[in-house]
């Protein structure tokens, strides 16, 4: 479906979508309490795709779960489309309009506080990129989450080690990332973000009491398609030639 969207819209953040596929799969299959037929159900869990440029991965999952019709996928970015190049709240199942980086955790903190005040059991999951952690607002929000002991808040980091220009280690290194979140007061888990069983296990495990969670998912940008993997030039692609799309489909079929 991600490639259908690329093909239909002629553009998309391919690599950024492919690194989160298993994460959103496990969230929507096994973790999130949501109702596709009632997207605004008050007691639902909230999932914010803070790295909005990974939206092709989210769209595929929301369509698969029946939040909207699969035929919308191939229309993305076209005039009159339901789905744009970043998620917006007009799309059923999208909790917050994102695309500008560093916004999701702040909103998630507010939602987690609201759930606590309203005595709802809703949990809030916020998925950020690794390059996104360059934004200071993420760390401001991390301080606040920790202060309020938001155990109903889970930050998931798609740590694919690549940002737009190149390697995270070269642009703005994040290590030691787990220790940073520990120091900010989070209960931290690290997991292979493409290992479905491991992801299930991490999300099923109880978090640290009175602490927000950080699940650092070690992933591969462009996962599943050899020409995209670890390749910064596949962060975003526009004007894809039919041969390139065919190549993507072929590569995916071969894996």
């Amino acid at each position: 479906m991600v490639i259908d969207a690329l093909d239909g819209g002629g553009r998309g953040h391919v690599g950024a979508a492919l690194s989160i596929i298993e994460i959103v799969r496990v969230l929507y299959d096994d973790v999130l309490k949501v109702r596709p037929s009632e997207p605004r159900w008050p007691d639902r869990d909230r999932f914010i795709l803070s790295k909005g440029h990974g939206c092709l991965g989210l769209y595929a999952m929301l369509a698969d779960k029946g939040f909207f019709d699969r035929s919308e996928i191939a229309q993305q970015c076209r005039p009159g489309a339901l789905l744009g190049g970043h998620p917006e709240i007009r799309t059923p199942g999208v909790e917050a309009s994102t695309g500008a980086l560093g916004h999701g955790l702040g909103i998630g903190v507010g939602m987690a506080l609201a759930a606590r005040m309203q005595k709802r059991n809703s949990r809030v999951f916020v998925l950020t990129g690794d390059g996104e952690l360059n934004e200071g607002s993420v760390w401001e929000s991390a301080l606040i989450a920790s202060k309020h002991a938001l155990s109903n808040l889970c930050l998931i980091v798609d740590y694919n080690k690549m940002q737009s220009y190149g390697r995270v280690a070269d642009i703005l290194p994040l290590e030691p990332l787990g220790a940073k979140f520990e120091a900010f007061g989070f209960g931290v888990s690290e997991v292979d973000g493409h290992d479905v069983a491991a992801l299930r296990q991490v999300f099923a495990a109880p978090g640290t009491p009175n602490r927000p969670r950080a699940v650092i998912c070690h992933t591969v940008k462009g996962r599943g398609i050899p020409i995209c993997e670890h390749n910064a030039s596949w962060h975003h692609k526009a004007k894809l030639a039919p041969e390139q799309v065919a190549e993507l489909r072929h590569a995916l079929a071969a894996t």
Binding site: S137, E140, S141, I144
Partner: peptide, 18 residues
């Protein structure tokens, strides 16, 4: 919530969404 205007606006948005 401290001298963290960006986070505070996000927090307020999250509260307002709910």
């Amino acid at each position: 919530e401290g001298v963290s205007e960006a986070a505070i606006i996000g927090l307020a948005a999250g509260l307002a969404m709910d």
